[in-house]
Amino acid sequence: MSFAFSVAGILAAPFLGGLLAGLDRKITARLQGRKGPPIIQPFYDVIKLFGKESTYTNRHQVFYIYAYLLWMAMALLLLLTLQDFLVFVFALTFAEISLALAGFSTRSPYSHIGSNREILQILASEPVLVFLAFALYLASGSFMAGGLFLLGEPLLRNFPLIFAAVLLILTIKMRKSPFDLSSSAHAHQEIVRGVTTEFSGRYLALSEIAHWVELVIILFVVFLFWVDPWWVGILLALAAYLAEIVIDNIFARLKISWMVATAWGWGFGLSLLNILYFTM
């Protein structure tokens, strides 16, 4: 894919992510029998936040919030230009670790809880993405995501178990129930506001945008399972997203240890099994 396309993709990602987030709120409202906010509600929120006074608790916090957004954009760039998938995973990890460090860089118990949980979310979800990189290599002989487009058959065919594992960590990455541990959209089950407790104004807006980009990234990863023809992949990603919204609404938040155990037991196990099965 061309450079211009990637730049356009990076600029479009926040809008797409915002719309998806708005869709999520609308569907969630309808599932709960409410009318719900307009689809573009997330944009109202973020623009408003930019207009609010920004306070900060610690200069390093500001630095890490910018790092969160920047490295998220970097991860998206690497993904859209179909670069090395492992490098993409590392960039994504950098972004998430920046968020955790932003939470840590203040002496607030609430954001510390959020940060500790954010680390555990990284711990739970990263292995599956690395396994996906290995699956990519086994399928195409290279870690470059571009190899998938030359493959001739969808990745899903040979790696259904890894797909299942990716669906599992999708919940973690989107911070949806039952795994919305570090920062939940649902006030009723959040300890104040998790990792974003001490963000305000512009910084909260930046972290929100970064989260939208993350949403696009994770759906793009789902898309990679069926790139040819491309519309099947997009349908796959959208279906996965809708399923996540439903799951979000029918589950309550579960315990952190349960998340790690599930992600490492099932996610790790299924992925490894799939890779061993493929190589043997």
């Binding site: 409202a29 719900g36 906010p37 109202y44 006030a187 959040e190 305000s200 909260l204």
Partner: peptide, 13 residues
Amino acid sequence: ERFGAISIGCPKH
């Protein structure tokens, strides 16, 4: 939430 109002737990937001 029709009007975009959500209940938020944190005064900073």
